[in-house]
């Protein structure tokens, strides 16, 4: 039984890693076929670095995913705070349902519905080009939002409601209580949301495909355009490079992920400090 399950495990991982192995192998191809290896060389890496369009697409993608991650995290944090404080149950569930639409809807429907909005407003305002960096940014913020909100809400639920109140009892203004008590507590959720939004935006193709104009090409759109022509191993070189960057980031993130445990300890320490100060004040009174 044990050996059978091990064989099964290995087979599944072979299946999951076969395309990645092919990608890495072919990226070092000396020839220009994507199927037959013809010697080993770094030729395609040089070619890729010389290709201005690819580098521009990479820059565009980083710009887009950083800005959409930052904006959607800001918007999502406010939204999560607002949703958490909503008392009316049906109103709350209505807001949640609308929030989840971009997550539940197929990407293609989200993409084309946004495209139609932009096309319609564009023609209404008599704009020549209605799809640009800005439409892409709006679309990315929109589909990242639910993921950000859903990673912050559980943190808010975990928090003891008495904590911010205790802070205000001790003389904090609501703003101070938010900045000094609530925000540090939900920080891990905010960071998770930020990272998630960045990766979703970086990796998105389907929604970008419908909402980007000709002037602003992201990496995935560039790759898509490349695969329409005859493919040379240079996109494999590019992807291999991205793969190793991602791998390093993932490993770093995983080694540093004692953070949940740490946040629990921090909460305990904070609570202790508050009760101590409360006693102190009472003693003084």
């Amino acid at each position: 039984m044990k050996t059978a399950s091990r064989i099964f495990l290995v087979l599944v991982f072979i299946f999951l890693y076969a395309p990645l192995a092919v990608m890495i192998l072919i990226s070092f191809n000396g020839g220009d076929s994507t199927t037959v290896m013809d010697g080993v060389s770094l030729h395609w890496y040089q070619e890729m670095l010389r290709d201005g369009a690819t580098l521009q697409a990479l820059k565009n993608t980083v710009l887009l995913s950083v800005s959409s991650a930052v904006v959607s995290t800001l918007l999502g944090t406010l939204a999560a705070l607002g949703i958490h404080r909503m008392r009316a149950k049906h109103l709350r569930s209505a807001v949640m349902t609308v929030t989840n639409i971009p997550m539940m809807n197929p990407d293609i429907v989200t993409g084309i519905s946004m495209m139609l909005l932009f096309v319609f407003t564009g023609t209404l305002l008599h704009l020549d080009t209605y799809l640009s960096f800005w439409t892409l940014l709006i679309a990315h913020i929109t589909f990242c939002l639910p993921y950000v909100i859903l990673s912050i809400l559980p943190k808010l639920k975990q928090m003891d409601r008495n904590l911010p109140e205790a802070a205000m009892d001790l003389g904090c203004t609501p703003m101070q209580s938010f900045l000094k008590v609530e925000l540090p507590f939900i920080m891990p959720g905010i960071v998770t949301g930020l990272i998630m939004a960045f990766t979703l935006s970086f990796d998105d193709f389907i929604i970008s495909n419908f909402t980007s104009g000709s002037g602003f090409e992201t990496l995935t759109i560039h790759i898509f355009a490349m695969t329409k022509k005859s493919v040379k191993p240079d996109i494999y070189a590019l992807s291999t490079l991205i793969f190793f960057v991602v791998l390093v980031l993932l490993l770093v993130y995983n080694f540093a992920s004692g953070s949940d445990e740490r946040s629990k300890q921090r909460e305990k320490a904070a609570r202790k400090r508050f009760t101590l100060r409360l006693r102190e004040e009472r003693g003084e009174l």
């Binding site: 990608m23 990766t199 996109i235 494999y236 993932l250």
Partner: peptide, 14 residues
């Protein structure tokens, strides 16, 4: 999780 981080355009091509 690692294969999830590769874009599906590339893996499909592979």
């Amino acid at each position: 999780m690692i294969p999830l981080w590769m874009n599906f355009l590339i893996t499909t091509y592979s």
